[in-house]
Amino acid sequence: MADVTIFCFFASYTVAFALDVLRLKKPNRTTWMVSVGIAAAGFVAHTLFLLNSADKGREELLPPLLSSSQDWTLVLAWLVVGFHLFLTCCDRALSVGVFLFPLVLGLIGSSYFLADEPSQLLNAAESARRGWTMLHVSSLAIGSAGVLAGIVLSLMYLLQHRRLRQKGSSATGLKLPSLERLSRMNWWSVMVSVPLLTVGMGTGLVLLLSGSTGGRELSLGDPVVIINGISWLGLMGLFGWILLTPRATGKQLAWRTLLACGFLLVTVVGLNVLASRSPGFSGHASATPRGPHSGLVEAGDRS
Protein backbone atom coordinates (compact mmCIF):
# COMPACT_ATOMS: atom_id res chain seq x y z
CA MET A 1 0.00 0.00 0.00
CA ALA A 2 2.82 2.34 0.83
CA ASP A 3 4.33 1.74 -2.61
CA VAL A 4 1.46 3.39 -4.45
CA THR A 5 2.72 6.34 -6.44
CA ILE A 6 1.03 9.08 -8.41
CA PHE A 7 2.20 7.38 -11.58
CA CYS A 8 0.08 4.27 -10.77
CA PHE A 9 -3.26 6.02 -10.94
CA PHE A 10 -2.12 8.54 -13.54
CA ALA A 11 -1.36 5.61 -15.88
CA SER A 12 -4.71 3.94 -15.07
CA TYR A 13 -6.63 7.09 -15.88
CA THR A 14 -4.67 7.57 -19.10
CA VAL A 15 -5.58 4.05 -20.28
CA ALA A 16 -9.23 4.52 -19.22
CA PHE A 17 -9.29 7.80 -21.14
CA ALA A 18 -7.85 6.12 -24.26
CA LEU A 19 -10.51 3.38 -24.01
CA ASP A 20 -13.26 5.97 -23.66
CA VAL A 21 -12.01 7.69 -26.79
CA LEU A 22 -11.96 4.30 -28.53
CA ARG A 23 -15.55 3.73 -27.46
CA LEU A 24 -16.60 6.76 -29.47
CA LYS A 25 -15.64 4.87 -32.61
CA LYS A 26 -16.53 1.34 -31.59
CA PRO A 27 -18.95 1.32 -28.71
CA ASN A 28 -19.24 -2.09 -27.09
CA ARG A 29 -19.84 -3.55 -23.68
CA THR A 30 -16.40 -5.10 -23.28
CA THR A 31 -14.56 -1.82 -23.86
CA TRP A 32 -16.89 -0.13 -21.39
CA MET A 33 -16.27 -2.76 -18.74
CA VAL A 34 -12.49 -2.66 -19.22
CA SER A 35 -12.51 1.15 -19.14
CA VAL A 36 -14.59 1.30 -15.95
CA GLY A 37 -12.49 -1.48 -14.39
CA ILE A 38 -9.23 0.34 -15.06
CA ALA A 39 -10.65 3.66 -13.89
CA ALA A 40 -11.91 1.98 -10.71
CA ALA A 41 -8.49 0.38 -10.13
CA GLY A 42 -6.92 3.80 -10.55
CA PHE A 43 -9.47 5.24 -8.15
CA VAL A 44 -8.54 2.64 -5.52
CA ALA A 45 -4.82 3.39 -5.99
CA HIS A 46 -5.61 7.10 -5.81
CA THR A 47 -7.53 6.59 -2.57
CA LEU A 48 -4.69 4.58 -1.03
CA PHE A 49 -2.21 7.25 -2.01
CA LEU A 50 -4.31 9.95 -0.36
CA LEU A 51 -4.76 7.85 2.77
CA ASN A 52 -1.00 7.46 2.99
CA SER A 53 -0.67 11.21 2.70
CA ALA A 54 -3.30 11.66 5.39
CA ASP A 55 -1.35 9.44 7.78
CA LYS A 56 1.71 11.55 7.13
CA GLY A 57 -0.36 14.68 7.73
CA ARG A 58 -1.72 13.44 11.05
CA GLU A 59 1.74 13.08 12.47
CA GLU A 60 2.19 16.76 11.88
CA LEU A 61 -1.27 17.63 13.23
CA LEU A 62 -2.57 18.69 9.82
CA PRO A 63 -6.02 18.10 8.37
CA PRO A 64 -6.16 14.69 6.72
CA LEU A 65 -5.76 14.60 2.92
CA LEU A 66 -5.26 18.35 2.71
CA SER A 67 -1.89 18.74 4.28
CA SER A 68 -0.13 20.10 1.18
CA SER A 69 -0.99 21.81 -2.10
CA GLN A 70 -0.22 18.58 -3.91
CA ASP A 71 -2.59 16.60 -1.71
CA TRP A 72 -5.23 19.22 -2.17
CA THR A 73 -5.01 18.99 -5.99
CA LEU A 74 -5.04 15.22 -5.83
CA VAL A 75 -8.13 15.28 -3.63
CA LEU A 76 -9.79 17.47 -6.23
CA ALA A 77 -8.86 14.97 -8.98
CA TRP A 78 -10.14 12.15 -6.75
CA LEU A 79 -13.52 13.88 -6.39
CA VAL A 80 -13.73 14.28 -10.18
CA VAL A 81 -12.94 10.58 -10.77
CA GLY A 82 -15.58 9.63 -8.21
CA PHE A 83 -18.07 11.82 -10.07
CA HIS A 84 -17.06 10.13 -13.32
CA LEU A 85 -17.52 6.62 -11.94
CA PHE A 86 -20.89 7.54 -10.48
CA LEU A 87 -22.18 8.99 -13.77
CA THR A 88 -20.77 6.15 -15.86
CA CYS A 89 -22.36 3.50 -13.69
CA CYS A 90 -25.69 5.36 -13.75
CA ASP A 91 -25.78 5.45 -17.54
CA ARG A 92 -23.44 3.16 -19.44
CA ALA A 93 -24.04 4.98 -22.72
CA LEU A 94 -22.77 8.36 -21.52
CA SER A 95 -19.38 9.53 -22.79
CA VAL A 96 -18.39 11.39 -19.64
CA GLY A 97 -14.82 10.12 -19.45
CA VAL A 98 -13.85 11.94 -22.61
CA PHE A 99 -14.54 15.21 -20.82
CA LEU A 100 -13.52 14.40 -17.27
CA PHE A 101 -10.30 12.44 -17.75
CA PRO A 102 -8.40 15.31 -19.42
CA LEU A 103 -9.25 17.41 -16.35
CA VAL A 104 -8.20 14.64 -14.00
CA LEU A 105 -4.96 14.08 -15.87
CA GLY A 106 -4.34 17.83 -15.96
CA LEU A 107 -4.86 18.12 -12.22
CA ILE A 108 -2.64 15.13 -11.45
CA GLY A 109 -0.03 16.42 -13.91
CA SER A 110 -0.05 19.83 -12.30
CA SER A 111 0.31 18.24 -8.85
CA TYR A 112 3.83 17.19 -9.87
CA PHE A 113 4.73 20.86 -9.85
CA LEU A 114 3.12 21.59 -6.52
CA ALA A 115 4.71 21.32 -3.10
CA ASP A 116 4.17 18.08 -1.22
CA GLU A 117 5.48 19.56 2.04
CA PRO A 118 3.08 20.39 4.86
CA SER A 119 1.70 23.91 4.73
CA GLN A 120 3.38 26.47 6.96
CA LEU A 121 0.01 28.05 7.39
CA LEU A 122 -1.32 24.87 8.84
CA ASN A 123 1.73 24.37 10.97
CA ALA A 124 1.30 27.84 12.30
CA ALA A 125 -2.34 27.32 13.08
CA GLU A 126 -3.06 26.74 16.69
CA SER A 127 -5.17 23.80 17.55
CA ALA A 128 -8.10 26.17 18.20
CA ARG A 129 -7.89 27.32 14.57
CA ARG A 130 -7.71 23.83 13.18
CA GLY A 131 -11.47 23.68 12.72
CA TRP A 132 -11.45 26.93 10.75
CA THR A 133 -8.59 25.71 8.63
CA MET A 134 -10.37 22.45 7.97
CA LEU A 135 -13.54 24.28 6.94
CA HIS A 136 -11.48 26.55 4.72
CA VAL A 137 -9.68 23.85 2.77
CA SER A 138 -12.57 21.38 2.50
CA SER A 139 -15.10 23.94 1.29
CA LEU A 140 -12.56 25.15 -1.24
CA ALA A 141 -11.94 21.57 -2.40
CA ILE A 142 -15.61 20.71 -2.85
CA GLY A 143 -16.38 24.14 -4.31
CA SER A 144 -13.56 23.68 -6.79
CA ALA A 145 -14.89 20.26 -7.73
CA GLY A 146 -18.19 22.01 -8.44
CA VAL A 147 -16.35 24.52 -10.60
CA LEU A 148 -14.75 21.69 -12.56
CA ALA A 149 -18.14 20.01 -12.93
CA GLY A 150 -19.53 23.33 -14.17
CA ILE A 151 -16.82 23.56 -16.82
CA VAL A 152 -17.37 20.00 -18.01
CA LEU A 153 -21.16 20.28 -18.01
CA SER A 154 -20.97 23.56 -19.93
CA LEU A 155 -18.69 22.00 -22.51
CA MET A 156 -21.04 19.05 -22.85
CA TYR A 157 -24.00 21.38 -23.21
CA LEU A 158 -22.33 23.44 -25.92
CA LEU A 159 -21.30 20.32 -27.84
CA GLN A 160 -24.74 18.77 -27.59
CA HIS A 161 -26.35 22.07 -28.59
CA ARG A 162 -24.08 22.40 -31.61
CA ARG A 163 -24.75 18.84 -32.69
CA LEU A 164 -28.51 19.22 -32.45
CA ARG A 165 -28.48 22.52 -34.28
CA GLN A 166 -26.46 20.91 -37.05
CA LYS A 167 -29.03 18.08 -37.17
CA GLY A 168 -26.52 15.50 -36.02
CA SER A 169 -27.96 12.44 -34.39
CA SER A 170 -27.38 11.95 -30.70
CA ALA A 171 -27.29 8.19 -31.18
CA THR A 172 -23.78 8.06 -32.61
CA GLY A 173 -20.39 9.31 -31.40
CA LEU A 174 -20.46 11.12 -28.08
CA LYS A 175 -23.35 10.03 -25.92
CA LEU A 176 -24.43 13.06 -23.96
CA PRO A 177 -27.36 13.78 -21.65
CA SER A 178 -30.17 16.00 -22.91
CA LEU A 179 -29.76 19.77 -22.98
CA GLU A 180 -32.43 20.04 -20.32
CA ARG A 181 -30.55 17.75 -17.92
CA LEU A 182 -27.16 19.32 -18.64
CA SER A 183 -28.60 22.75 -18.02
CA ARG A 184 -30.15 21.65 -14.74
CA MET A 185 -26.91 20.01 -13.56
CA ASN A 186 -24.96 23.08 -14.60
CA TRP A 187 -27.29 25.30 -12.60
CA TRP A 188 -26.80 23.16 -9.51
CA SER A 189 -23.03 23.03 -9.94
CA VAL A 190 -22.90 26.82 -9.81
CA MET A 191 -25.42 27.01 -6.99
CA VAL A 192 -23.36 24.64 -4.87
CA SER A 193 -19.82 25.64 -5.78
CA VAL A 194 -20.09 29.43 -5.48
CA PRO A 195 -21.32 29.48 -1.86
CA LEU A 196 -18.72 26.86 -0.92
CA LEU A 197 -15.94 28.83 -2.57
CA THR A 198 -17.19 31.94 -0.83
CA VAL A 199 -17.11 30.15 2.52
CA GLY A 200 -13.63 28.86 1.73
CA MET A 201 -12.35 32.27 0.73
CA GLY A 202 -14.13 33.96 3.63
CA THR A 203 -12.58 31.63 6.20
CA GLY A 204 -9.23 32.14 4.48
CA LEU A 205 -9.68 35.86 4.94
CA VAL A 206 -10.50 35.33 8.62
CA LEU A 207 -7.35 33.28 9.03
CA LEU A 208 -5.37 35.93 7.22
CA LEU A 209 -6.68 38.75 9.36
CA SER A 210 -6.17 36.77 12.54
CA GLY A 211 -2.50 36.52 11.72
CA SER A 212 -2.08 32.79 11.19
CA THR A 213 0.02 33.22 8.07
CA GLY A 214 3.11 31.41 9.12
CA GLY A 215 5.06 34.57 9.73
CA ARG A 216 4.75 35.85 6.18
CA GLU A 217 3.90 39.36 5.16
CA LEU A 218 0.67 39.35 3.16
CA SER A 219 -1.42 42.24 1.93
CA LEU A 220 -4.70 42.72 0.13
CA GLY A 221 -2.71 44.27 -2.72
CA ASP A 222 -0.90 41.00 -3.39
CA PRO A 223 -1.35 40.03 -7.11
CA VAL A 224 -2.48 36.55 -6.10
CA VAL A 225 -5.13 38.00 -3.82
CA ILE A 226 -6.28 40.40 -6.52
CA ILE A 227 -6.50 37.76 -9.28
CA ASN A 228 -8.32 35.30 -7.04
CA GLY A 229 -10.62 38.08 -5.94
CA ILE A 230 -11.45 38.95 -9.54
CA SER A 231 -12.18 35.27 -10.32
CA TRP A 232 -14.41 35.08 -7.30
CA LEU A 233 -16.22 38.26 -8.33
CA GLY A 234 -16.78 36.71 -11.77
CA LEU A 235 -18.37 33.67 -10.14
CA MET A 236 -20.45 35.85 -7.86
CA GLY A 237 -21.65 37.76 -10.91
CA LEU A 238 -22.72 34.46 -12.48
CA PHE A 239 -24.36 33.41 -9.24
CA GLY A 240 -26.27 36.67 -8.99
CA TRP A 241 -27.36 36.45 -12.61
CA ILE A 242 -28.66 32.92 -12.08
CA LEU A 243 -30.59 33.95 -8.99
CA LEU A 244 -32.07 37.08 -10.54
CA THR A 245 -32.91 35.63 -13.98
CA PRO A 246 -36.00 33.43 -13.95
CA ARG A 247 -34.84 31.41 -16.94
CA ALA A 248 -31.10 31.30 -16.44
CA THR A 249 -30.63 28.16 -18.49
CA GLY A 250 -29.39 27.02 -21.84
CA LYS A 251 -26.55 28.21 -23.95
CA GLN A 252 -26.13 31.51 -22.12
CA LEU A 253 -25.71 29.74 -18.81
CA ALA A 254 -23.26 27.30 -20.36
CA TRP A 255 -21.11 30.05 -21.83
CA ARG A 256 -21.12 32.15 -18.69
CA THR A 257 -20.31 29.16 -16.51
CA LEU A 258 -17.55 28.12 -18.85
CA LEU A 259 -16.01 31.58 -18.83
CA ALA A 260 -16.32 32.24 -15.10
CA CYS A 261 -15.29 28.76 -13.94
CA GLY A 262 -12.66 28.41 -16.64
CA PHE A 263 -11.08 31.71 -15.64
CA LEU A 264 -11.07 30.67 -12.02
CA LEU A 265 -9.54 27.30 -12.80
CA VAL A 266 -6.84 28.68 -15.08
CA THR A 267 -5.84 31.48 -12.70
CA VAL A 268 -5.87 29.35 -9.56
CA VAL A 269 -3.99 26.41 -11.05
CA GLY A 270 -1.65 28.80 -12.87
CA LEU A 271 -0.96 30.76 -9.71
CA ASN A 272 -0.39 27.61 -7.73
CA VAL A 273 2.12 26.29 -10.22
CA LEU A 274 3.86 29.66 -10.52
CA ALA A 275 4.00 30.09 -6.77
CA SER A 276 5.41 26.61 -6.34
CA ARG A 277 8.01 26.77 -9.10
CA SER A 278 9.07 30.44 -8.87
CA PRO A 279 10.34 31.45 -5.45
CA GLY A 280 10.23 35.08 -6.52
CA PHE A 281 6.59 34.99 -7.49
CA SER A 282 4.45 37.41 -5.50
CA GLY A 283 5.65 39.76 -2.82
CA HIS A 284 5.97 37.26 -0.03
CA ALA A 285 7.64 34.44 -1.86
CA SER A 286 11.01 34.98 -0.26
CA ALA A 287 9.46 33.81 2.96
CA THR A 288 7.94 30.71 1.32
CA PRO A 289 10.54 28.87 -0.70
CA ARG A 290 8.92 26.33 -3.08
CA GLY A 291 5.53 27.53 -1.98
CA PRO A 292 4.31 25.23 0.77
CA HIS A 293 1.44 27.70 1.14
CA SER A 294 0.58 27.65 -2.48
CA GLY A 295 -2.61 26.34 -3.97
CA LEU A 296 -6.19 27.33 -3.46
CA VAL A 297 -5.62 26.94 0.25
CA GLU A 298 -3.22 29.79 0.07
CA ALA A 299 -5.31 31.74 -2.39
CA GLY A 300 -8.14 31.57 0.08
CA ASP A 301 -5.85 32.58 2.88
CA ARG A 302 -4.86 35.68 1.10
CA SER A 303 -8.25 36.82 0.09
Partner: peptide
Protein backbone atom coordinates in the same frame (compact mmCIF):
# COMPACT_ATOMS: atom_id res chain seq x y z
CA UNK B 1 -38.40 12.10 -31.12
CA UNK B 2 -36.08 9.28 -30.10
CA UNK B 3 -33.03 10.73 -31.81
CA UNK B 4 -33.50 14.47 -31.54
CA UNK B 5 -36.17 15.49 -29.05
CA UNK B 6 -34.58 13.24 -26.42
CA UNK B 7 -31.33 15.12 -26.97
CA UNK B 8 -33.12 18.33 -26.05
CA UNK B 9 -35.59 17.32 -23.38
CA UNK B 10 -35.13 14.98 -20.47
CA UNK B 11 -38.82 14.28 -20.01
Amino acid sequence: VGEFARGIFDR
